[in-house]
Structure formats: C-alpha cells, structure tokens
Amino acid sequence: MIDHSNREDFLNAIAEKAGRPRHQLQDHPFEPLNDLPETTLSGHSQDELEAIAKKNSEAVHVTFETTNKAGLADALNAYIEHDAPKTLILPTTDQYDDYGLRDWTKTVAPKPMYWTPGKGRDFNLKQAAAADVAIGFADYLLAESGTITIATTPGQGRGFHFLPTHYLAIVKKSNILPRSRQAMDRYDAAIKAGELQTSNINFITGPSNSGDIEMTLVVGVHGPLDMTYLVVEDM
C-alpha cells in the first residue's frame, strides 16, 4: 500500500486555496465545446491525403517516396545504395511477412543488425548508435503535418528512431490519416482496451532541427540528420 500522505496534504492545501472542494470532477467531466480537432482537414480521399502528406512532408525536409508492395525491396535497396552505409539496423517484427520483406532481410547489404528483444539496454542502444541507417515501420502518416507516428515495441525501441544517422520509415498508404487527432483516437482506444501495451508513442515530423544559434535553422541536431518516408501505395 502506497503512503499518500504527501499527496493528500498537497492536494488538500491547493483545494483550500482555490476555495473549491475536491472530488467534483466525476460530475463535471470535460466536454469539448467544438469538434475542430476531428473536422479540420476531413472529407479527403486517400489519394488526396497522400498528396497533402507529400507536400507537408517535403516542407519539413523529408524525402517522400512511394512504391508498391512488389517494388518495396528494390526501393529499399536503392535508398541504401544512395547513402552507401557501413551499418544498417532493422526492427524485430512480424511486419516483414506482411510487407513481403522476409527474403529481402536475408539478402540486404550491409548485413543488418536488429533491435533485439531480450538483449537488453546496452546492446540495443550501442547498435542503434553505431547504425548509419535505420529502416523502421511507422504506424501512421499524418497528412496535415507530414508526421509519422510510432508506438514503442520490444522489437523497435525508443533509441531506434533517434540514434542512427539516417532514417527511413515505411508506412502503408491506407494508414495515412488527416491529422494528429485521428492517430490519437486510435492510440487512446487501443491503450484503454489493453490492445496496445507501450511506454512510449512518438510523433516524428521530419529530421531533428534547431534555431538556437542566431535563429538559423540547422537540420539534424540530436536525432537523425535526414529522414525518408516510403509509402506503400497498394497496402
């Protein structure tokens, strides 16, 4: 049993200062006065959303590529050849079967390292930090802001998205959503239903950047120096 005396003391004190009794919330839950988060940018077809996503992704310095399931392995090889990396990291996931990439993982060069469940913090972080390129799977792509969203899993950890130098995210066209609200609705429901057990959800909008020195935009600070989104159009 956790001792809550520190908490109770604190909360009683602020309730007293506010002049409002505690435990009133259950009768007054939050009800938003408008539905702008849901309705903004609504009513677009998947083709239109893809076009909006492309425009907004490129505006945040993302390379936006498209392919289909049959061409996915070739598209990835072309991406890797472009940067000629010495090291590559991939997630551990069943999604390779879904995307038809199982064979590709056996032939791709350089030979990939994997973010590996059960191998612990140091092993995985060291690998990710040593990776020139990371290729991962995003859950959704948000058209309005050019954002990919990813929930952390045992096979694709937090550091996977931040430590490598170059980063590519694969995402299905059917998972392009209008805005952050639609993604959040899905995550919120999945967490509450117990379907998603994660400690972390990342909304990533282009490569890291900073304007801290004389307001000059520098792309690539702590996170990857560049980002590519690869949309699989027939999935």
Partner: peptide, 21 residues
Amino acid sequence: GQKLTSYCSFSGKQVEGEADG
C-alpha cells in the same frame, strides 16, 4: 510557427519486454 514540432512524445515508465526507456 510549426504544425507540429519534430518530436511530440507521450512517454512513461518502461513496459516489460522493452529494452530502453
């Protein structure tokens, strides 16, 4: 003046099975 900043994260204590966090 950005639609979203580069990173908006929603995060807590490591869940069993995860390597970092």
